[in-house]
Design a binder for these strands. Sequence first.
DNA 1: TAAAAACGTTGACATAGGACAAGATTTATG
DNA 2: CATAAATCTTGTCCTATGTCAACGTTTTTA
Lengths: 189, 189
Amino acid sequence: MYSTLKEFIKRKGEIDNKSLDEICSHFQLLKTKRNEILLSYNQIATNYYFINKGSVRLFTNTKEGQEISRYFAFEGNFVTALPSFIDQKPAEEFIQTIERSELLYISRIDFYYLVDTMPLFAKIYTEIIELGFIVSQKRIYGFQGFDALEKVKWVIQNQPKLLLKVSNKMAASYLGISPSTLSRIKSKL
Amino acid sequence: MYSTLKEFIKRKGEIDNKSLDEICSHFQLLKTKRNEILLSYNQIATNYYFINKGSVRLFTNTKEGQEISRYFAFEGNFVTALPSFIDQKPAEEFIQTIERSELLYISRIDFYYLVDTMPLFAKIYTEIIELGFIVSQKRIYGFQGFDALEKVKWVIQNQPKLLLKVSNKMAASYLGISPSTLSRIKSKL
DNA sequence: TAAAAACGTTGACATAGGACAAGATTTATG
DNA sequence: CATAAATCTTGTCCTATGTCAACGTTTTTA
C-alpha cells in the first residue's frame, strides 16, 4: 500500500526504515470512483493527497459556468489546493478525481507535524513546492506567445501523459483553446 | 542600507537583532545602471537578489530574436533565476535591471548556509517559494481563457505597479499580446 | 548636443481560432 | 440494457488580435 509513496520519499534523500514507516503511518487510504469531488469551491483544504493510482485534477468554473482545468496530477505525485491548504482560506477551485483512484491522504495537522519534526520531511515539502513552482514557471513560459499548435506540442513534450489520460474538453480548457481547435490539431498530428 | 531587507524579514516572524544582523551581513550592495544584465542565458545563477530600490526583470528571446519578459520584481522583493539557482544548471533566461537599481545580493553558498543553520531563514525561504508558487498559479489561472482586455485589467488589479513602471513593449510580451494591442487597450482605459 | 536607434501610437489589412450547429460516438443513469 | 446525456468531430462563419507600415516621440550613443 505504501510502496509508491516510499519510493517517492527515498528518491528525495537517505532515510531509515523507521522514519519511513513513521511518515507513512500518517497517511490513510482513500479509494474513489471516477469524477469524485475531494474538495469543493469555498471549502478549506485540510488534506494533502498522494496519488497511488489514478488521476486528479484541479478546476474552477468561469462566470459563464464553464469548467476550466487548472492542473492534472497522476500516479506518484502529490496534489492539493495549495493556496487554501497553506493559508486556510476558502479554496477558489475544486479537487476531483478523473478516474477510479487510490489516494493516500495526510491531514494538514499531521503534515505540518512531520514538517516540523522531521527535517527530511521538511526538505521533501520544500522540494515539492520548488518543483511546483518550477513547473508553473515552465508552464507560463512555455505558453507565452505560443499559438494553439505550439501549445499542444509543448504539452506532448512536457506532460506526455496528459493528452493520453485526459478528455479533450479538459485538456482544451487547460491549454486555453477551444475543444474544436484541439480536436482539429490532434487530427493533423 | 539594510532597512528594507530587515523590514522584509521581520514581517516573516519574530527575530532578535543579532540574528537579523547575522543574516544581513551575508548580503552585499550592488548599484546598477539601467538595463544592466545580472545573469546571461546559459550562465549558472549563483546569487539571490533582494531589491532595495529599482526594478528587475527576467526575460528570454524567442527563436526569432524577440524578447519575452517573464517576470518583474520591484522594491522589497527577492528575485533570481530559480531553476538555475536551485539545480545549478544553465539558466534559460536573463536577469536584467530595468532602471537604476540598488540591489543586495547573497551568494548561493551563503544563502544555503543560512537556510541550513537558521530555522527562521529556512522558513523565509519556504515562504518565498510558496509565495512564488502561488503567484505563478494565480498568473496562470488569471490568464486562462482571458482575452487581451481582461488580461490588462487583471494585471492592473493584481500587479498595479507593473504597467506604471514597465515599458509598453515589455508589458505586452509579459501579457502575451502585441504592443499595438496593448497600446490600443490602454488608450480606452 | 546632434544624429541614430528604439519605442509608442494609430490605421489598414489578414488570419488564427472562437462560436455555433449537426451528426457520430461515448458515457451515465434508471 | 435501453434511453438519455455528454462528448468528439467537422463544417461554416465571424471577430479579436496579429502584422506591417508610417509618423511622431523618446532614449541612446558618440
